[in-house]
């Protein structure tokens, strides 16, 4: 069994294809959609958690790549710049999955990347701009 969070980047010509249907039907994967958006250039971005048999998972990934999708590991998409963080904790009441939390009694911010679902709220609300992303989110 494998459980993996990935970001699937769809080129414009594939945005309207029922890709998820085939992932479930042909490759027997459990698909949990975390977030999906389409930019004005009609490029799609789908963040999913995929669970299933490892061999079938690898085959599914090969099939997606062959179709022309770009696949990225969902972790390392949102970066915590500890050097810029002032540990105020403003992010901790906003983060919906507690990926950002406060360690008590040290009162230092803790970032657990594996809990992040890339909602990107922290990018907007961190006053010190200590949260960064590699994703171009200008249109999201």
């Amino acid at each position: 069994m494998i459980k993996q969070k990935v970001v699937l980047h769809f080129p414009p010509q594939l945005v309207e294809e029922p890709t998820i249907y085939y992932l479930i039907k042909e490759y027997d994967l459990v698909v949990n959609i975390l977030r999906a958006d389409i930019n004005p250039d009609k490029e799609g971005r789908l963040m999913v958690e995929l669970t299933g048999d490892e061999v079938k998972y690898q085959k599914a990934m090969q099939w997606l790549k062959k179709l022309g999708l770009k696949i990225m590991n969902l972790e390392k998409q949102i970066i915590w710049r500890e050097d810029l963080c002032t540990h105020c904790g403003a992010c901790t009441a906003i983060c919906p999955t507690e990926a950002l939390s406060m360690i008590r009694p040290q009162f230092k911010v803790l970032y657990r990347e594996e809990c992040c679902v890339i909602c990107e709220l922290c990018l907007r609300i961190c006053p010190a701009k200590a949260m960064e992303t590699l994703i171009d989110s200008s249109e999201s």
């Binding site: 105020c88 904790g89 008590r104 230092k108 006053p127």
Partner: peptide
């Protein structure tokens, strides 16, 4: 406030600081 949540009547409300306690310390 520093515990991370307060009760307002029956509502549990998460708290966050804008001032850095670690910095103050």
């Amino acid at each position: 406030l520093r515990s991370g949540e307060i009760m307002i009547k029956d509502l549990k409300v998460p708290t966050a600081s804008l001032s850095s306690y670690a910095g103050a310390r």
